[in-house]
């Protein structure tokens, strides 16, 4: 494990915890796309089925369990506990436009045509676009709470760090996984516009608001 991979995992964890704490402390999930959260929970559940079939390390298994539990807890908070604060009117991205093509693609382009491998591939492709409902929601309302932007920053940073990790692993271990790399690139690129706004606005103490 190299430092970029570890930093990526930590930043992923920070993102998930920021979101959970934000919802819990403010007793509100205003501005959060429940649809993106359902997609992320689906990503973890379909990817980490190997918890039952292979043991890699204590670190690996614990992180998987933490990611799955936190993402399901987030979905629970948005759709049950704090449902009254959920801004469903603005969370109108058509999720089937993501899930159907991603499902089709995972059947067509995968490492091995087996159920586990197809589900893993599905989760990789789905993760790369799962943030779109959230970004769509922000573009609709034209603004985001600062804490939500921190969440997005760490979520974007995570896959960016994984990209560096993959370059590292290719050079030093000869390891590469083309499916993960291409999807990770797509995922990171989707955050670029947001990163720009984050650096030029949020880090200078301004609220993230889009020009009308």
């Amino acid at each position: 494990m190299n430092i970029f991979r570890l930093a990526g995992d930590v930043s992923h964890l920070v993102a998930i915890i920021i979101l959970l704490l934000k919802i819990w402390k403010t007793r509100s999930c205003a501005g959060i796309s429940g649809k993106s959260q359902i997609l992320f929970a689906s990503v973890f559940v379909t990817r980490y089925l190997d918890l039952f079939t292979i043991f890699i390390s204590l670190y690996n298994s614990s992180m998987k369990i933490i990611y799955i539990s936190c993402s399901i807890a987030t979905v629970y908070l948005v759709y049950f506990k704090f449902k009254a604060t959920y801004d469903g009117n603005h969370d109108t991205f058509r999720v089937e436009f993501l899930v159907v093509p991603v499902g089709g693609l995972s059947f067509l382009v995968n490492h091995d045509f087996s159920p586990m491998e197809i589900l893993w591939t599905f989760s990789i492709y789905l993760e790369s676009v799962a943030i779109l409902p959230q970004l769509f929601m922000i573009s609709k309302t034209g603004e985001a709470e600062t804490i939500t932007t921190h969440y997005l920053f760490f979520l974007g940073l995570y896959r960016g760090l994984y990209l560096i990790n993959w370059i590292w692993r290719y050079y030093f271990e000869g390891f590469f996984d083309l499916i993960a790399i291409v999807a990770g690139l797509v995922q990171t690129v989707l955050y670029c516009d947001f990163f720009y706004l984050y650096v030029t606005k949020v880090l200078k103490g301004k609220k993230l608001s889009l020009p009308a």
């Binding site: 991979r5 995992d9 992923h12 190997d50 292979i54 890699i56 091995d112």
Partner: peptide, 10 residues
Amino acid sequence: DNEQLVKDEL
């Protein structure tokens, strides 16, 4: 090729 299928990343 089987090695490709071992997923040690998250």
